[in-house]
Design a protein around this nucleic acid. Structure first.
Lengths: 212, 212
DNA sequence: TGACCTCACTTACGGCGTAAGACTAGCATC
DNA sequence: GATGCTAGTCTTACGCCGTAAGTGAGGTCA
């Protein structure tokens, strides 16, 4: 009694509102700080209410991952393009989606989103790669490698942000001359790391092509 | 009162015992199931006692990561070898270490171990790569890419294990013919994925060499 | 002897996820 | 209108969690 809200019993909370608020909360405070109670408070509702829109907390986290992916990955291939461009474009979409919701990144570490939508996108990528000459299984490996690299770099970057800013460059000092030299040009950004990794991966894939 | 243990006040618990038990617990029940209280119970001790040997829970997790790395990574380069062999060997050590403690894998997602030991190993790798013709910064990118790939594949694999065994191969059916074909040869193992990724990465690095 | 240090224990607080169940509004049916 | 059903919400409660704060027993050394 005495809630500030309308207290009408059917407030008309929808699953979409719940998801949107959850993504927002994760973006703001990080995935680790996401709790059912806090999310409910945000929506001016009791915690247990959320369980009508979401199976449990893991279900909520799954839904966040799907939400972020759905927001980022575009299903159709617009113009004819080289497989390199298609793969790089896919990686870039994924990268941008994660960059948009950095708080949700840890959720990607422990789950694989298997939805009709993601499967359709996967199938499309596989088709492009097969048409380019890759065996289907090799193509699957390739897609996994690219997705893993993108998520992995984001994860690593997020982890570093949470760490003491004890500048590694200082530690490097005289004992670690090559490391010091490598860091001389300023800290390594995630973007540059990701770009390097993807460039190397794609170049490596080219050498694996039967005719290459 | 009335504990079953000796109840002598100084039981002689050491940090090493704590760490070993923590790694064991993580291996058995997974990192998510690791709690100060459970760990204390395992050691027949009260939870707060652990705080004499470890700063807090995050400190414990950091220590586990260091422990696993220290157990796995060998610092010296034994015989002269190609940079490709050195890099592949390093990746293999890391892979084996993670495979030995799968429960600890999630802890690697959110932190970068910066210890004198790991820095020394990093320096060594950078030196080998620089001597092979890579610019120091490129070499650093390269090491990050490899480490990220190994940890990423383990993470992805661990995530899949926790998921419904809804056989993707079944879902693939007729709508996703290329995916079905890719999965026809049985499920993709982590080993094969990792090997593929590393092969591609190293092949890609070769193309980035000034003289290559 | 007594001061001090180290290690372990006790108690307590505020959080968490969620099982079980009670209440209520709206709707379909008679 | 009365009845009963359903779905959305709230209440209560349980057993976890990390850890701050305080207590006290043994050992060490002046």
């Amino acid at each position: 009694m005495g809630r500030s809200r309308v207290q009408g019993k059917h407030a008309g909370l929808t699953r979409d509102q719940v998801l949107q608020a959850a993504v927002h909360l994760a973006d703001r405070d990080g995935a680790a700080a996401l709790s059912m109670r806090k999310l409910a408070r945000e929506l001016d509702v009791e915690a247990m209410t959320l369980y009508h829109h979401v199976q449990n907390k893991q279900g909520l986290e799954d839904a966040i991952v799907e939400y972020v992916l759905a927001e980022s990955l575009s299903p159709p291939p617009p113009p004819p393009a080289s497989w390199q461009q298609v793969v790089a474009g896919h990686a870039d979409e994924l990268h941008r989606g994660l960059a948009k919701h950095p708080g949700a990144v840890p959720l990607f570490a422990s789950r694989t989103a298997i939805t009709p939508r993601t499967l359709a996108i996967l199938e499309h990528l596989l088709r492009v790669l097969r048409d380019a000459g890759f065996a289907p299984r090799t193509a699957l490996h390739l897609v996994y490698a690219v997705a893993g690299a993108v998520v992995g770099q984001h994860l690593a970057y997020a982890g570093e942000q949470n760490q003491q800013p004890a500048d590694v460059a200082d530690l490097a000092g005289d004992d670690l001359p090559v490391l010091a030299e490598a860091l001389a040009g300023g800290p390594v950004t995630m973007e540059s790391r990701l770009e390097f990794t993807l460039t190397a991966l794609i170049a490596g894939f080219e050498t694996l092509l039967p005719g290459g």
